[in-house]
């Protein structure tokens, strides 16, 4: 068992080195490809990212396969059950650590996908300034003023001959509704983070309180008991305060996000508001 464990640890160490080296080297490559990929859907970049994530997964698969073969199925004698469980546990934990490292790198790799939606939105605004007085009625030739940004095909009436002209927006403007949400989320990401941080902090406080309460069970020293009880009370107060803030932060994020979205595509405000209502209705505090 000892020898197998050492070999397993060494094996996972080597996988870890590979994983770190490969992931580290891939990040600048992916960033470069993301910046230079002019395809509307950034498909070259996405393929390369999938391939990199696939390679990391191939490392993890190898680890899992060897773990199953050499550790899970390790033959042991009945009287060494306890030793076996200990051995197995340590080996599992080693692979688990690799899994955690992998998760961190996967997130870093996902984060190479940066897109500035402001640029795309700016293009739509600029286009509108150019085209708003560029079209003429197909019946009588009079100017047909495009009075606002339309993101769906619509009928515009010629003010001179009353003909209904069909106005079809450009491809980029047709994507305004979806782009609007992405942009609104980008603009308000700091508020979402604030909410998430508050949740994380109250979770940490919970764990700390729990830990202190457990330690009280074995505490004999009266002074320490009083001190710890006081500490627990303080932490509970902090936690309560945070928990009161959480729904407010949650609502504040969504309200601001939807306000931004409404500003970007006011034609869909009525629909956005229904979506907002649903989100708030479904919210359950932790």
């Amino acid at each position: 068992m000892k020898e197998t464990k050492e070999r397993f640890f060494l094996f996972i160490d080597k996988l870890e080195d590979k994983l770190r080296e490969f992931a580290e080297a891939s990040i600048p490559e992916l960033e470069e490809l993301n910046n230079n990929d002019t395809d509307e859907y950034k498909r070259e970049y996405s393929s390369m990212k999938n391939a990199v994530l696939g390679q990391l997964e191939s490392i993890m698969k190898k680890g899992r396969e060897v773990q199953e073969e050499k550790i899970t199925n390790f033959p042991y004698h009945e009287n060494e059950t306890k030793a076996y469980y200990e051995f197995r546990n340590e080996c599992y934990q080693r692979l688990h650590r690799l899994d955690e490292i992998n998760a961190i790198y996967c997130e870093k790799i996902e984060n190479t996908q940066q897109e500035d939606y402001e640029i795309k939105y700016r293009k739509i605004l600029d286009e509108y300034q150019i085209i708003k007085d560029q079209f003429h009625c197909s019946q009588c030739g009079s100017l047909v003023h495009i009075d606002k940004i339309y993101s769906t095909t619509t009928y515009l009436t010629c003010s001179f001959c009353n003909t209904k002209n069909t106005f079809e927006p450009s491809s980029q403007t047709k994507a305004l509704e979806q782009l609007g949400r992405s942009l609104a989320e980008q603009r308000t990401a700091h508020l979402l983070l604030q909410y998430q941080e508050a949740c994380k902090k109250s979770q940490q406080l919970y764990l700390k309180i729990h830990e202190l309460e457990l330690s009280l069970t074995w505490e004999a020293d009266k002074n320490s008991v009083t001190q710890k009880e006081k500490q627990i009370q303080d932490l509970k107060q902090q936690k309560e305060k945070l928990e009161q803030q959480e729904p407010k932060l949650y609502q504040h994020y969504w309200r601001t996000m939807f306000d931004e979205w409404n500003k970007i595509n006011p034609d869909m405000e009525e629909q956005h508001e229904k979506f907002y209502t649903r989100i708030l209705n479904e919210y359950k505090p932790n």
Binding site: T153, T154, Q271
Partner: peptide
């Protein structure tokens, strides 16, 4: 026509969100 479908499409997506 496209004008009808564009609106229907945008509104069906919105209904799914709602």
């Amino acid at each position: 026509e496209k004008a009808v479908f564009d609106e229907a499409s945008a509104l069906w997506i919105a209904r799914m969100q709602e």
